[in-house]
Design a protein around this nucleic acid. Structure first.
Length: 267
DNA sequence: CTACCGGGCTGGTTTACGTCA
DNA sequence: TGTGACGTAAACCAGCCCGGT
């Protein structure tokens, strides 16, 4: 992000930025681990007022598959109104099914004779509350399913494995969307906070610049020679350069330090 | 090392269904 | 009661990645 340079050679720099790091979520299942290594961006907002020439590190956020962060994604899923209907179920996707799955489908498919007329139309099944609850419960334990789990769950729910698979895919997508919304809200708040902080530090910077310009010549000597408390304007003795004994010298990387709002205890 | 294949995943889209004005 | 708009979720598709051969 931006780094406001010091236009008056005061040696002060105001920085505004995010440091981002990636935290990998460990997948529950052993298969396809890489797919499930969801990159989770952890943004740490940072705003600093410091000496120019400091190095600000920005972590690389472009590792792995990037997560898209939408701005206008604030829809929330409503609870499923579960009215079970029957599905013709025979869709062209069947060509992809293994013989085992097709057999399972034959057993579990709830196709009635009259529904055979609707074979070519895509009928949609509404899951019952019980089915949804069990799927949700299973999703809490494993966000992805291996083939055995899929088969078992399908048998348990009297659904086709493909339906279970699709449900999990859509469920993951919804989870991700929701997480994106949460991330977006968080980033908005961070942005607001940092904007306020930036404004405050800009003001502080202006004040410091003005103060420096107003100083008589002897006060413009290096901080190692003379120091002055900004609150009581008393000139201190010869400083040894250590910030420990000299609260008015600039720390190597000052962070949210305001000598005006944080008057020296030494005074 | 490279090519191919199968399986699984994601992002996006389509569409059936439920709700509500 | 009928209907159209709209939201939701089931189902689908294309494309990508990865492991195995």
């Amino acid at each position: 992000m931006g780094c406001l340079d010091d236009g008056c050679n005061t040696g002060l720099v105001l920085g505004l930025g995010f440091s981002a790091s990636t935290a990998m979520e460990k997948p529950e299942n052993s298969n396809n681990q890489k797919h499930k290594m969801m990159n989770k961006l952890c943004f740490e907002p940072s705003l600093s007022l410091g000496l120019s020439g400091e190095i600000y590190n920005h972590h690389d956020v472009s590792k792995g598959r990037e997560e898209s962060v939408g701005v206008d994604l604030f829809r929330h899923a409503s609870p499923l109104s579960a009215v079970s209907s029957f599905s013709s179920g025979r869709v062209k996707r069947e060509r992809d099914l293994s013989s085992e799955e097709i057999e399972a489908e034959r057993v579990s498919s709830r196709v009635s004779d009259e529904d055979e007329d609707a074979i070519n139309t895509r009928k949609k099944l509404r899951l019952t509350k019980e089915q949804s609850a069990l799927l949700e419960e299973s999703f809490k334990q494993h966000s992805t399913l291996n083939p055995k789990q899929k088969q078992a769950l399908a048998r348990q729910l009297n659904l086709r494995p493909r339906q279970v698979e699709v449900w999990f895919q859509n469920r993951r997508a919804r989870t991700k969307l929701k997480q994106t919304e949460v991330d977006c809200e968080f980033l908005k708040k961070c942005c607001e906070t940092l904007t306020d902080e930036n404004r405050r530090l800009q003001k502080e910077l202006q004040e410091l610049k003005a103060l420096k310009l107003a100083q008589p010549f002897y006060m413009q000597l290096p901080a190692a020679t003379l120091t002055m408390c900004p609150s009581c304007e008393r000139i201190g003795g010869v400083a040894d350069g250590s910030s420990k004994n000299n609260p008015f010298s600039m720390a190597p990387k000052p962070h949210f330090y305001n000598p005006f709002t944080n008057p020296s205890a030494a005074c």
